[in-house]
Design a protein around this nucleic acid. Structure first.
Lengths: 150, 150
DNA sequence: GTTATAGCGTTACATTGTTGCGCTCGCCCA
DNA sequence: TGGGCGAGCGCAACAATGTAACGCTATAAC
């Protein structure tokens, strides 16, 4: 994420929080900035490491910030990687899908209605009420696949 | 899982391994039996606890057995729970989906082609080659929903 | 201003998963 | 038939991730 995009993302987050009447504190903002800047999944302890310069933060501090950012939909957690990534469209609540490349570590966030619909209808058939649908597809991205095919 | 079903599952596993020319050793069988008997997600350390009677097993032993059982498709790992569950139809390779109730902790394994197809086509659009599609839906099962509605 | 509450710091700890090394047992083949 | 080879396992230590509990501080509401 280049500096402009990053500033843009942070500004949007700020606006969203104001609109919602919730507090994007300095800690939360610091963590959000680090997650967004990375443009790849970052672990909680990696965030802590980056925070050592300046005001160091202990695990509970970082996890509290991350939990809050998750609740606000500003970041996502990738369960298979134990890592976090900035949300690409936090304006509305959504059920995302993630394509995770195990070659380069890159992650693509999708928001495909057909998948969400399939999930919802299958769940409905069994009377199940989804609250948090998690879709993480491990595989090889097109760039890495091309490299492998050499 | 009642005793008959369990014995059946173990017998099927045994047959599959013979057919594949791989070794379902005593350790692996013990772990598989514990996972299948539970009928709910069990953690690796929970398995270790159950193994204390008899021959105790250290973490690497249990994880090695679990990794092997995963590779053979005899158990699944639920990433969101850090837990394992017996596969309900290990005969063929498959991409499963899981409905995970956060009320009772019960898990339903599905194998719905519409979801798998949606995932595959969306991945294909971006040139992504899926190797391990993970779908875990957290929510409330019908029984727990009924109880809540009281 | 006073007070209730959300946020944060700190310590200690819990849970989950891994690395490395060496021994043994079963299997293959000369 | 026995020599070697590799898969499997025991063991010790450790790494990574995530939590609990408690009290202080700063912000917001009245």
């Amino acid at each position: 994420m280049d500096d402009d995009t990053l500033r843009n993302a942070l500004a949007r987050a700020e606006a969203l929080c104001t609109e919602r009447g919730v507090r994007l504190t300095a800690q939360r903002r610091r963590v959000l900035e680090l997650v967004c800047r990375a443009q790849r999944p970052v672990g909680a302890y990696e965030i802590m490491d980056q925070l050592r310069d300046g005001a160091p933060a202990a695990p509970p501090t970082v996890y509290r910030a991350l939990d809050w950012l998750l609740a606000q939909g500003l970041v996502h957690k990738l369960e298979t990687l134990h890592a976090f990534i900035g949300c690409t469209h936090p304006e509305h609540p959504h059920a995302s899908q993630f394509l995770i490349c195990d070659g380069c570590g890159g992650v693509t966030e999708l928001e495909d209605p057909s998948i969400a619909d399939s999930l919802a209808s299958v769940a409905a058939e069994s009377g199940f009420r989804p609250s948090r649908p998690i879709v993480e597809v491990i595989g090889t991205c097109s760039a890495c696949a091309a490299r492998e095919d050499d």
